[in-house]
Design a binder for these strands. Structure first.
Lengths: 317, 317
DNA sequence: TACGCACTTGGTATCGATATCATTGGTGGT
DNA sequence: ACCACCAATGATATCGATACCAAGTGCGTA
C-alpha cells in the first residue's frame, strides 16, 4: 500500500480509503487509485486488516465428520447446508472456517467472529462448551432455550405424517427411530400429539441406526410380537425402504396393508419401488438462515431461533 | 502479551518465546509463564502472528457446491474427503477455509498458504485460473501434467471390472457414463485396455446423469437397438441400479443374463436386491493425502501426483 | 475582512505478535 | 587476569493496514 501511495503521489491512508470505497475521497481520485491498484495486481493483506480492525471476517463452522456417528457422514445434506452457509457468508464478505469438534480448540477458531454448529444435535455438552467461547453462535438442530437454533420444523414433520395417516384411515401407526436424538424426539412429539387429537396412540419402535437392515429388523420384530399395525413412520428414508422390503417378504403389501412414510426425501426415494412418500426439508435455505443469523449477531442485532417448514411428498407408499 | 509480561516481570518477547516452546528460554521460566498464560486465559492473537510471520496457517478448499452440477452435491463423498483433509490439516496446526468457486476471489482465499481443489474435474479452465494465484495447489481428480493431482486410480477401476467380466466369461460388455468427465474417461480407458488384451471391444453408451432413470434408459436404448450385451459397467451405483431394474422389466435377469458392476459402493449397494457389485474408493485416505501434499508444498518440499488403489467389491450382480 | 463550514488529504499512533541484534552474567581455559 | 563462549533475557524495529486528529483548500455569509 505504501508503494502504491508513492507511485500515485498520495498518502497511504488515501489509498486505504480509496480501496474501501470511502466517500471521504474524491470520486475521481478514488477511481484512479482503484484502477492503479487493479493494474498493479495489488492484494490487500487480510492479516493486517484483521489485526487493525480486531475482526477476522471469518465464521467457524463446526461439523461432526466422523463416519458412523449421528449418520452425518452418510448423506449429502450437511454438504448442502454448508453450501447455503458458504454462499450467504461470502456474499457478505465473510469466509467459512471449517473444523471438526476435535480441531475446534485451534487458535484460528477462537479468532473467528462467529460460530455455527452442525450435527451436534445429541451432544448438548459440546454445544455448551462452545458457547463458553463467548462468540456469537447459532446451532442447527432442535430448538431449546439455551441457544439460538435454526432447524427444520420436526414437530410439523411428525404432524403432517400423522394427519396423512388419519386421512388414509389408518388406526394403528408405528414410529421407528431414535427419540434420544432431539430432532427425532420432536418428530415423535408432533406425531403423537396430532394422533392424540384423534384418540390414537402410536407404537414406538426404537431403532438407533439409519439403515435398511434396521428398518427391516423393526418390521420383523413387530410381526413376531403379533402387534397389529397399518402404518409406519420411519425417521429416515433408508429405514422406510428397509421396512417396505421386509413387509413384502412377510407377506404384507405396501400401501394396501400398510402405509409407510420416510424422512428426508433422498433422491432415490422417488424411484424406489413403489415410489416412497417422504418428508422433505429445505437444507439449502437452512444454511442461508444459519448464516444470516450469525451475521446479525455479529452486527449486534438481536436474533431468535427459527424453524423452517417441511413438506410431505406423497407418493405411493 | 504485554500485560502478561508486566505481571510476570519479564519482557514480552520472553513471553512470546515461552509460549512457543522456544529452547531459548530457561525451562523453569518457560513453564511458569505457560502456566500463568493458561491461568489468565490468554489467547494468542492469530491475526497479529499471521501478519508478522507472513503466513496464515490456512489452506483454502474450493468445492463445487451447486446442486445438480457434477453430482457433487448428491452424495456424501465430498464430505468424507473434507473430513480427511480437515483432520490432517488441523493435526498440523492449519485450518480449512471452505469456499465455492464463486467465492474464491475473496481476499481471505488469496491470503491462504495453499489451495485444494475438489470437484473441479471437468473445469480445467477454473483449475488454471486458481493456479495463477501462485499458491501451492493440489487438485482432486484425474492426473494430468499440469498440476499436482491426487485421485483414486480410475484406470485401475476400469481394469479390475474388465478382468472381472473376463473371469465370468462375458464377451460383450457395455460401459455407461460420461467420458467427458476426466475421471470417468480414465475408467473407460482402463476398461477398454484391459478388454483389448482379450480381443474384446466394449460398447460405450454415453449418459451424462448419474440417476436411476438414466441407467434404465440406457438399457432400454440398448435393447431397442438389438445390440447383444452380457455385462454392464456403470460408472455410478445409481446408474447400475437403474440398469438392473430396467433389465428385469425387459425380461433379462441379473446376474444370469447380464453382469452389472457399479461405482462408489454406496451404503445402499450392499442391500440392493440383488446385492450390487461395485468399485470402492478410499475417500478418507484421499483427503489425508491431499492435505499432506499441500503441507509438503507449503514447506517447500517437492511433491508429485499420486493415485490411490481402488477395490472391487464382488457381490451378486 | 473575518469567520465558519464542507470537502479533501495527510501525519502519526496503533493493533499484537516476532526477528534481529544487543546485553548481561556466569564458566572455563590458558 | 584475560578472553572466548554459552545461556538467558531484553530493546527496538517491523509486518500492513486503519483510526484519530489535524490541516489545507475553496466558498458563502455576516
Amino acid at each position: 500500500m505504501a508503494d502504491l501511495a508513492e507511485m500515485a503521489g498520495v498518502s497511504k491512508i488515501t489509498i486505504s480509503r480509496a480501496l474501501s470505497d470511502s466517500p471521504l475521497v474524491n470520486r475521481e481520485t478514488r477511481e484512479r487509485l482503484q484502477a492503479l491498484a487493479h493494474e498493479l495486481g495489488y492484494k490487500l493483506n487480510v492479516s493486517a486488516r484483521n489485526l487493525r480492525l480486531r475482526r477476522s471476517h471469518t465464521v467457524a463452522v463446526i461439523v461432526e465428520m466422523k463416519p458412523s456417528h449421528d449418520r452425518t457422514m452418510l448423506d449429502p445434506y450437511p454438504l448442502i447446508l454448508l453450501g447455503g452457509i458458504s454462499q450467504e457468508l461470502t456474499a457478505h464478505g465473510y469466509s467459512v472456517l471449517l473444523t471438526t469438534r476435535q480441531g475446534a480448540t485451534a487458535a484460528a477458531v477462537q479468532a473467528a467472529d462467529g460460530l455455527i454448529l452442525l450435527g451436534q444435535g445429541s451432544r448438548q455438552d459440546a454445544v455448551r462448551r462452545f458457547d463458553k467461547l463467548g462468540l456469537p453462535m447459532v446451532v442447527w438442530g432442535a430448538p431449546g432455550d439455551e441457544h439460538i437454533v435454526v432447524g427444520s420444523d420436526n414437530s410439523q414433520g411428525g404432524r403432517v405424517v400423522a394427519e396423512h395417516f388419519i386421512r388414509l384411515g389408518r388406526r394403528n401407526p408405528v414410529f421407528v427411530g431414535n427419540p434420544n436424538h432431539p430432532e427425532i424426539f420432536e418428530r415423535l412429539n408432533g406425531f403423537v400429539d396430532a394422533l392424540a387429537a384423534h384418540g390414537i396412540k402410536p407404537l414406538l419402535i426404537r431403532r438407533d441406526e439409519f439403515t435398511l437392515a434396521s428398518g427391516g429388523d423393526a418390521m420383523h420384530s413387530l410381526m413376531d410380537r403379533g402387534v397389529p399395525f397399518d402404518a409406519v413412520f420411519a425417521c429416515s428414508d433408508l429405514l422406510a425402504m428397509g421396512a417396505i422390503r421386509a413387509l413384502n417378504t412377510l407377506g404384507r403389501t405396501v400401501p394396501n396393508d400398510v402405509s409407510v412414510v420416510g424422512y428426508d426425501d433422498m433422491p432415490l426415494a422417488a424411484s424406489f419401488l413403489p415410489p416412497l412418500s417422504s418428508v422433505r426439508q429445505d437444507w439449502q435455505e437452512g444454511g442461508t438462515l444459519l448464516a444470516r443469523k450469525v451475521l446479525a449477531l455479529i452486527g449486534d442485532q438481536p436474533e431468535q431461533s427459527e424453524t423452517l417448514p417441511v413438506e410431505l411428498i406423497v407418493r405411493e407408499t
